[in-house]
Amino acid sequence: MDMIHEAAHVARHEAARAALAAQSGSEYLTFRLGAEEYGIDILKVQEIRSYEVPTRIANAPQFVKGVVNLRGVIVPIVDLRLKLGCDTAEYNSFTVVIVLNVKGRVVGAVVDSVSDVLELSAESIKPAPEMASAVDTSFITGISSVNDRMLIMMDIESLMASPDMGLMDESH
């Protein structure tokens, strides 16, 4: 009987260690908006696509560029550069759409370019300083420094689900 208890104890210990390891390093997709580089949870990213001109929707906010048909799913396209107050939003060969899955909805986010995927530990992300800026800092979860690069960590789910975006049903 003791061997069974011992095996169960070891299994629990291994599971706890695996859970801790999974927690300690999370993967983030990094992308550029103007001069800044941002990081978002890779688990929210469904795919990355080249930019295609969406179908405009009447009375949509300026930052909602329209919708595209993505394999039968109508996906709203948000230009994060306009939403976050970047000076210019130029469309060129580097412009991409990050297709996100946010609270069960598929949403596209236009960014200047995608940089890479990084694994960051929770300790490497520092709290964002309080500052008066054009960007709504309530969606910024922290700042991380990676090889001389400053990454602004963003809670993309909260940003996309915020009421002023008008993308999510209030009941969610």
Rank of each mutant, 00 (worst) to 15 (best):
G66W: 01
V114A: 06
T137F: 10
E170I: 07
R105S: 07
E130S: 03
F31M: 05
F139H: 12
V106E: 13
M131I: 14
G108V: 04
D112V: 09
S171T: 05
Y28D: 03
M3Y: 12
G85R: 00
M1F: 10
G25R: 11
S145Y: 15
P76H: 01
A122S: 10
R17S: 12
V53T: 11
T88W: 09
V64L: 15
V107M: 03
L118F: 04
S121E: 15
V67F: 00
L159G: 00
V111G: 10
S162K: 12
G85A: 01
T95N: 14
A35M: 05
I140Y: 07
D148N: 15
V96F: 00
P61A: 14
V110Q: 08
E27S: 11
A35V: 00
E47W: 09
K83C: 04
E14C: 04
E119A: 02
E157H: 08
I140G: 03
R105L: 02
Q46A: 08
V99T: 04
V135D: 01
E27N: 09
D41L: 02
I156M: 14
V146L: 00
M165A: 03
P127H: 11
M1D: 09
L33C: 15
A89F: 09
G104V: 10
V110E: 02
P54F: 13
D164L: 04
S171F: 05
G108H: 03
S145T: 15
V106R: 12
S115D: 15
K126M: 02
M153G: 01
M131Y: 07
A15R: 12
V68R: 12
P127Q: 05
S121T: 15
R71H: 15
Y91Q: 12
S144F: 06
R56K: 13
M3K: 13
I143D: 03
V117M: 04
T55V: 06
M3P: 02
K126P: 00
I40Q: 07
V53N: 05
V146H: 04
E27V: 09
S26E: 12
M1T: 09
D87T: 13
I77S: 02
F139L: 03
R56V: 13
A132N: 04
S113E: 14
Y28W: 08
V64C: 12
E52P: 01
E90M: 04
P163H: 04
V135T: 10
G39P: 14
D148Q: 07
V73Y: 01
L84C: 10
S121Y: 12
Q46H: 12
Y51L: 01
I48D: 01
C86S: 06
R105F: 06
S115M: 10
R32H: 13
M150E: 09
V78W: 04
D41V: 02
M154K: 01
P129M: 05
L43I: 07
G142V: 10
L159R: 01
D136N: 14
P127C: 08
R71Y: 08
L70S: 02
E157M: 07
T137G: 00
V64G: 04
